[in-house]
Simulated assay, not measured.
Amino acid sequence: MSGRRVILWRHGQTAWNVERRFQGTTDIELTEAGRGQARRAARLLASLRPHAILASDLSRAVHTAAELARITDLDVTYDDALRETYAGVWQGLTHEEIIASYGDQYAAWKRGEPVRRGGGELETEVADRAAPVVLRHAEKLPEGGTLVVVSHGGTIRTTIGRLLGLEPRYWESLGGLSNCCWSVLGEGARGWRLLEHNAGTLPEPVLGDDD
Rank of each mutant, 00 (worst) to 15 (best):
S173R: 14
G154L: 09
R190C: 04
L58D: 00
V76M: 08
D73Y: 15
D79T: 10
L74G: 13
L30D: 03
H137M: 10
E19W: 13
H152I: 01
D104Y: 10
T25P: 06
R5Q: 14
A130H: 01
A46E: 15
Q91I: 02
R40G: 06
T155S: 09
I160L: 11
V149I: 08
V148D: 00
V6K: 09
R116Y: 03
A66F: 05
H152K: 10
L164F: 12
V62Y: 02
W192V: 01
G165P: 12
G120M: 10
R70M: 10
G3A: 07
V89E: 07
E97T: 06
T64Y: 01
L141D: 06
E84Y: 03
Y78D: 10
A100H: 13
R35V: 02
G144Q: 01
S173G: 03
L185F: 13
E125P: 08
A189I: 05
R4T: 14
L174D: 01
T124H: 12
D128P: 08
Q91A: 05
G92R: 00
I98V: 15
A66D: 08
T14M: 06
S151G: 06
A33M: 05
A107N: 11
A55V: 04
E96L: 14
A69S: 12
M1E: 14
R136M: 09
H11M: 07
A15C: 08
R35H: 05
R35E: 01
R83K: 12
F22K: 09
K110A: 11
R83M: 03
H11R: 07
R129A: 11
V126A: 04
W192M: 01
N17G: 07
S178H: 04
R70T: 11
G200R: 05
V150W: 00
C181D: 10
L48E: 13
A189N: 11
V150Y: 01
A87R: 09
R10L: 06
A138H: 04
H137F: 14
H152P: 05
I28N: 06
T72A: 09
W171I: 12
A61Q: 00
E125W: 07
D75S: 15
L8M: 13
T26W: 14
D210T: 13
T124F: 09
R129K: 11
P168C: 07
E172S: 13
D80I: 12
P50D: 07
D79F: 12
I156L: 14
R60E: 00
L82Q: 09
I156S: 07
L166Y: 15
Y102K: 09
C180S: 15
I7C: 08
A15L: 14
E19H: 14
E125M: 12
L202P: 01
T72P: 04
F22N: 13
V76L: 12
H137L: 08
L30H: 02
V184G: 09
R116H: 12
L68Y: 04
G118V: 03
N17K: 08
V149D: 00
I28K: 11
E84R: 00
T94C: 02
A87L: 09
L54N: 03
R43L: 15
A107G: 05
S59V: 14
A100G: 10
H197K: 06
E139W: 12
N17L: 05
G24H: 07
L185N: 10
L207C: 02
A38R: 04
W109S: 06
G12D: 05
R116L: 03
S173D: 13
N179G: 06
L195V: 14
R83C: 00
G118W: 02
R20P: 08
